[in-house]
Design a binder for these strands. Sequence first.
DNA 1: TATATATGAAAGTCAAAGATAGTCAAAATC
DNA 2: GATTTTGACTATCTTTGACTTTCATATATA
Lengths: 152, 152
Amino acid sequence: MARMSDIIEEFIKQLINETDGVIEIQRNELASYFKCVPSQINYVIDTRFTTERGYYVESRRGGGGHIRIKRVNVDRPGNYLMHIVSSMGDSISQQSAEVFINNFVDYEVISEREGLLLKAATSDKVLGGIGIPDRDIIRASILKNMLTALLV
Amino acid sequence: MARMSDIIEEFIKQLINETDGVIEIQRNELASYFKCVPSQINYVIDTRFTTERGYYVESRRGGGGHIRIKRVNVDRPGNYLMHIVSSMGDSISQQSAEVFINNFVDYEVISEREGLLLKAATSDKVLGGIGIPDRDIIRASILKNMLTALLV
DNA sequence: TATATATGAAAGTCAAAGATAGTCAAAATC
DNA sequence: GATTTTGACTATCTTTGACTTTCATATATA
């Protein structure tokens, strides 16, 4: 069965596209539209519209409250990559690595094929043999080294 | 009696044929269809749908989770890559990896940027922390997984 | 009038319950 | 002896709901 969260995510992304990068939604309204509990909207926003993925979220409670989601602009791909690389920690899980990579592809900072290469090089499929703290450290190192190579 | 794993393997392959190279299955569903334990599906995938055999596997847990299996394109320019991948050993030094990669770029099987990514991911700069002989094993694994990803 | 308080309308938090898939090693089979 | 089958245990992701916080406005009070 399709995940409700994915459907809501797509819906919101489409809204953002149609409105040139910024939307304002009402949590309860959206929840009742999708017949889910309001907190699921929070879940979708917390997991899918994060800073890492290039979104900026603000909200206000009380009467007339709302949630505003803004898609961050990427003008200079090189700068963007450099910025991400330097803000990246020394350890990274497969999950976060994938989020970063998908984002690069979304923003057309790298091609889809390059995205596949990055994912292939950082997946647990190949790093699984390494024990747990080391694995994420090496993954971060591989990811950063690859991204840096693209800046040359 | 025929081996259950072989039957499941055939079943999955047929599915892949019918769907143009990519399928998404649910582990529990498939297991209950074949009246086997779920982990047997993992066994089949781990032993039969490997990189060496030209498959690319991803998965996701949790509600609405799934396992996605892609069959790599064995025709076309990939043929050469595929051949190399399956003939490559389980362990490879940095120098040998570089020779391979340079050849791929020379023969225009991959782009220069892709070559840079491959080198960045397999260099001792990032894998140096891993002791010999594990280092060369992981390098081979990364290299093969990356090349396979390009065939998808 | 100016300020304090009450009320209702949002959104936020967090943890439990549910739904999948992964791992690993013992047991069974070939 | 190697491969396959099984199952107990683990990890990860999603859904749900009870409870909390914040804000705007209406109402009461000094």
